[in-house]
Design a protein around this nucleic acid. Sequence first.
DNA 1: TTGTATGCGTTATCAG
DNA 2: CTGATAACGCATACAA
Lengths: 329, 329
Amino acid sequence: MVSIRDVAAHAGVAISTVSKVINHYPNVSEETKEKVEKAIAELGFVPNTIASALSSKQSGRVALLLKLNKRTNAADEIAMQYIAGAIQRARELSMDVVTVFYSMLEDKSVEEIIRYFETQGVSGIIIYSMDQQDEALLQLIRTDRFKFVLVDAPITGPNISSVSIDNRQAQKDVVLETAKQNDCSKILYIAGEESGYVTGERIAGMKELAREQGYKLKIVYGDFSEKKARELTLRYAKRYSVIVCASDLMAIGAMRALMDMDIFRPVCGFDGIVLMGYAGKQMNTVRQDFENISAEAITELRKLLSGSEGQQVILPHSLVRMKYEDVIM
Amino acid sequence: MVSIRDVAAHAGVAISTVSKVINHYPNVSEETKEKVEKAIAELGFVPNTIASALSSKQSGRVALLLKLNKRTNAADEIAMQYIAGAIQRARELSMDVVTVFYSMLEDKSVEEIIRYFETQGVSGIIIYSMDQQDEALLQLIRTDRFKFVLVDAPITGPNISSVSIDNRQAQKDVVLETAKQNDCSKILYIAGEESGYVTGERIAGMKELAREQGYKLKIVYGDFSEKKARELTLRYAKRYSVIVCASDLMAIGAMRALMDMDIFRPVCGFDGIVLMGYAGKQMNTVRQDFENISAEAITELRKLLSGSEGQQVILPHSLVRMKYEDVIM
DNA sequence: TTGTATGCGTTATCAG
DNA sequence: CTGATAACGCATACAA
């Protein structure tokens, strides 16, 4: 392993000078900088992240805190895109990523959670889809031990940023799109979990829309479960002209229930997952670019770690209509 | 941050003694061990993995090298299970996991790849579904820089283990199961990619079966692509009595093609992914427990890192028939 | 069985 | 602008 020491010797400068070049310190003369860079290239030197982390107490290491939803493949799809987006951006910013699942933190006290992350050397944490009632996590983000970026939870602070799409507007948009071709005057809205942050936003969008357009609106909670959406559809669908769901998974559940009932109702989803292509019928849905959302979360975290204040970041969404032909390749 | 030094002071022993207790060295008296453990508990000390890694040059850090298949959700499902299984087992063995995608290593020389992993402090690598023609990776595993576990590639060596199911047997099993209720005398076998290790194994199974049972067998390559499987089915299906696919994704493609053609042929898949529940019709398939496979890979890597010789590990598989009702919850 | 001392590869603080 | 040198927290050879 070629170390900074070798580079220093090869370039004929001091170790500390090499370090300064590596870390882009301002006060290094062009001349020596070139010498060092040449030596680095010739020796194929790459800094040892471990040593760097130990020395600087700044690991540049971030944790992704994700929900792992076994048995529903939609959750996998989203989580995987989150992971991929984060890892790739992290690599560009030469940050280090460790993936953690909620299940690994269950029944741990805040102190234990803190220690866990500390020993892992993480300095920033991205929390995906935090629940409003997750006390441990809420306490955690209030400690100043780490920097946080919350995806889909609109909490900000000096060391907390939030990243998400405009859920309220997106929810309105997808219904308006559907209304172009269909009767949406009587809406059955199948919301997510009552304790989810996005749930409130999306419901707010629906209420606003109903008011503006004079639609009738019935709200029920499907808990983001395909099965529950199916049951709710079987029970209520007949009385409404359209079914709007807060997730694609629920939309698929609703659609298949409708097919079983042999009645037609337009269905809207939310998320834009590939699985929609297998639903049997096309539906309008909001497409969230999860990879990009996650990548932006990393970028935000980088900023926080560099001393910036937390902020709220709203990313764009789009509307799509997915069909089988589009999702296979 | 409470360090080993604090623990030592608190317990009234030397730093090295604490280290020995932490790392379960044999020669520490029960008495001092208890003292130290008490101090550890009281101070809530957790060892700093970074410092430990730097000092020992043994990070206990492993990399997962995965294929990231955008746009096909089946790939996500499998990759996600691999990740989850690995992370959880790694946690149990207090190992550290970093996720890497093939795409991040593309057009990198072996030396660069080695350096990349070195600076990341990884000492072991799990390679999932390596391609027979991936020269860089093949060279990589020949270097003795890291320990390797190959999932689904039957290569072993002093520091290489392999983990997989018995692909040959599994492929036979699923067809035999299907043959109980259907005419399987004329088989259209849609294989995966010609360069894949598993492809050869599964084809061998098919050939063996065809010989044993006197089946007629036509082999075509679907490259694990749903679309290609669809095309091949549209082209050949009529002439055969059953369609056997080397992956669920291809099976779904085949099944939907059959539905479009409005003819019936039994279809077999391979993998047991949740997406099968959305295929429209039930199919027999081999279920691989990807989480467990990945967990076992971690266990194997742990053994290798502890000095064991590489070995081949064959894990069990099962047969399932998935329907929509089973996959929703 | 326990303690001392040195080093792991970097960063950061200060002299020069 | 450059160069010694002391940390960082832990592991380990070696001495006691």
